[in-house]
Amino acid sequence: MKPDRETVRGHLHAMLRIRRFEEKCAELYGAGLIRGFLHLYIGEEAVAAGVVPRIAPGDAILATYREHGHALLRGIPARQIMAEMYGKQEGCSHGRGGSMHLFDVSRRFYGGNAIVAGALPMAVGFGLGDRMRGTGAVTACFFGEGAVAEGEFHEAANLASLWKLPVLFCCENNLYAMGTALDRSEADTDLCEKARSYRMEARSVDGMDVFAVAEAARAALEYVRSGAGPLFLELKTYRFRAHSMFDPELYRSREEVEAWRERCPIESLKRTASAAGLLTDEDVASIERAIATEIDDAVAFAEAGTWEPVDTLARDVYARASGGSS
């Protein structure tokens, strides 16, 4: 399929939004305005940009603690995400979640989950809900390759396949589970083989190529929606930044990081699209301007946000107040 100007601009806009938003987050973290853990997605943008816009509004998304990009592209306003980073009550999780726990149920975005593989069994339940209620919707569950070492991955894979549930398992393989390389943690580094051992359809795609990801996501969602069962989609990618802001990156060489940076999904797209005459410098500049405006607005919104009064600390632990007990 030949890409057109509109598609190129759409992909570039999606990836640059994530990149610039997170660069701003890193800056604000340095300034002490964002605290806690901050896991940047920089380098992996083609994955979210390729997959998330293909997921229908009625479908559900479950993500990990490295989910800023997915949340942005799902349509949670940047200002609400930034306010959440600040811990303000105007944030998308009212300041209770932070960077790792972005939620927006109105957009069927069921969170950043900060337990590796912790969302996978829930994704099975979402699939069960859609199947038993006959909604026709599907659930997309994102996780890193580190999750594949967890028992919950294997339990969830077996259940989803056994029950033929409409779940798309999106494995973002960035080669490192925090600092442990895939080949130092898995006896078999072929992740698709693991999914296939549960008789699950499994496919692998270059996660640095947004066109390839978008096409793979489209086909995968079509497969899952058809009722054929779950699908495991491996997205081969790389994180350019440290695991979190506390990571000194002693586990990988500068040369390796540099080699992957050469394959930056944003720069690659710019190069190939410009060469094909599908993108001008002015296109890039106008996209950058729009994003800068959006991010400035998000920061201003977060700065102007308010702190939840401490006297409501105990709210939202239970949905129902208990009569007289504690």
Binding site: V124, G125, F126, G127, M132, T139, E155, L159
Partner: peptide, 26 residues
């Protein structure tokens, strides 16, 4: 079988599935 659902021995898997199903209308 849909409503009386035998699960394999995977407590984390099917308890988590119960949580997900509860979030998704069941």
């Amino acid at each position: 079988e849909d409503r009386i659902r035998d699960a394999p021995l995977s407590e984390s898997g099917f308890v988590g599935a119960g949580i997900g199903a509860a979030l998704n209308g069941l």
